[in-house]
Each structure stands twice: as C-alpha cells, then as structure tokens.
Amino acid sequence: MHSIRRIFSVGAAALMLGAGLVAGSSSAAQAAPADCTGGAKGFTDIPDSLSGTGVAGAGALSISTPPAVASYAMQTGNVGGTSMGWGVLSTSASIWGPTARGQVWMDVTNDNKKSWIQCGPFAVFSAGTRITTPAYPTSSSASRAFRVCAQVDSLGTSSGITCTPWW
C-alpha cells in the first residue's frame, strides 16, 4: 500500500512540476491596448495612415459566414527620426459583414524570443478600414525581434490567429 501511495505521490509531484514548467514557459503576456499606447513600454503612437516598408511577410485572413476579408503586415519606417516597426491590418472594402471584427497586435522581444511584450490587440469593425499598432524602435541587436499577429471573427466564426515570422 505504501508503494502505491509513493508512486501516486511521485507521479502527482512530477505532474505538478511539469504543469508549472509549461505554465512558466508561456511567454506571451496578455495585454490590452492601453498597455502600449501613450508612450507606455517604449512604444510610440502613430497614425493609422502611416505606411512604411513591408518586412517579415504579410498575410490574408478570411471567414465565409458572415463574410470578412482582411490583410495584415509588419512595416518599418522612420517615426520622429527613429527607425521603428509596427503592425497594420486592412479590412476589405467590399467583403466585410456587419458583425465582423478584425484584430491586430505586435509582439516585441528583447531577449531572443524567450519572452515578449504584446502590444494590442487593436480592433476594427468596419469595411475598408486600416488600423496600426503603436511603433517600437528597431535595433541591430540580434536579441530584439518583432512579429505581427491578426485574427478576423464574427458570430462565433474565426479565421484563427495568424502571425508573420519573427523579424
């Protein structure tokens, strides 16, 4: 009887330790737009109309019922004399249902992707709309990287979350 208890105790301890390691390795903190607007955490607010050079790829998102199509990308450019990166989401002017919502956010790491700051999500609800995340300074340091993630959803239908590669 003691050996069965010991096996269960060791097994439970291993399970708890494993769960703690998995929980501890979840690097992305849940964030709100206010966590990175107004100069918070080194981010700079930019106008939704700001365009830069596309880097790290881009993507398209769609759901069929109700229909919604959007595109997302990571861009870099000069913001107030500093080289910065940001995310952008553009909704389709012709394929956008009345209940659709598009979201975009940017993840920034300063420790080679061990952890990151999530800036957003920022949401848009109307057709033909462009929205950007706040911008963050680029760096020649190999430990700093960016990625942009996006999602489109409506009435329980979701495109799923899609991200650019880290850049």
Rank of each mutant, 00 (worst) to 15 (best):
P121Q: 07
V108H: 11
W105A: 11
R101T: 11
R130P: 06
G128N: 13
T109P: 06
M106K: 03
W116Q: 11
S139A: 07
W105K: 11
S141P: 03
R101G: 02
K113I: 12
S115M: 04
T109F: 06
K114H: 13
R130I: 12
S126Q: 13
I117L: 14
S126P: 00
F125C: 01
T109E: 04
A100E: 08
G128P: 08
V108C: 10
S140Q: 14
D107Y: 01
T132W: 02
I131D: 01
S143R: 05
G102M: 04
A142T: 12
T133L: 13
T129G: 04
N112G: 07
W116M: 10
T138Q: 08
D107K: 07
F122E: 02
V108S: 09
T129C: 09
T129E: 09
T132E: 11
T133N: 14
P137E: 08
T138R: 14
P98I: 03
G102K: 04
V124N: 01
N110M: 07
V124R: 00
D107N: 15
T138N: 10
A142P: 04
P121E: 05
Q118G: 05
D107T: 01
K114Y: 03
S143Y: 07
G128W: 14
K113Q: 09
T129W: 04
D111I: 06
S126W: 09
T99D: 05
S140E: 08
G102L: 03
P121H: 10
W105Q: 08
P98Y: 00
P121I: 10
Q103Y: 05
A142L: 10
A135R: 05
A135L: 03
P134A: 10
S143M: 08
Q118C: 12
W116D: 08
A100L: 11
S139M: 14
S141L: 06
V104S: 06
F122R: 05
V104Q: 07
Q118W: 08
S139E: 02
A123T: 10
G97V: 15
N110I: 01
F122T: 00
D111S: 12
V124W: 01
P134M: 07
T109M: 09
G128E: 10
S126A: 14
F122Q: 08
M106Q: 07
N112D: 15
Q118D: 10
I131K: 11
S115E: 02
V104K: 04
N112L: 13
T109Q: 11
Q103F: 10
C119Q: 03
W105L: 13
G128F: 15
A123V: 06
T133C: 13
K114T: 01
Y136A: 05
N110H: 12
C119T: 01
G128V: 11
I131E: 02
A123Q: 13
S115D: 05
N112S: 15
S143Q: 12
W105D: 03
P134C: 00
T132C: 13
T132I: 09
W116Y: 12
N112A: 13
A100W: 02
A100Y: 04
V108D: 07
A100D: 09
T138S: 12
G97K: 00
T99S: 07
P137R: 03
W105H: 10
D107V: 05
M106T: 04
T109D: 08
N112I: 04
R101Y: 10
A127N: 14
F125L: 13
Q118M: 15
T129Y: 00
G120R: 06
A127P: 12
F125V: 05
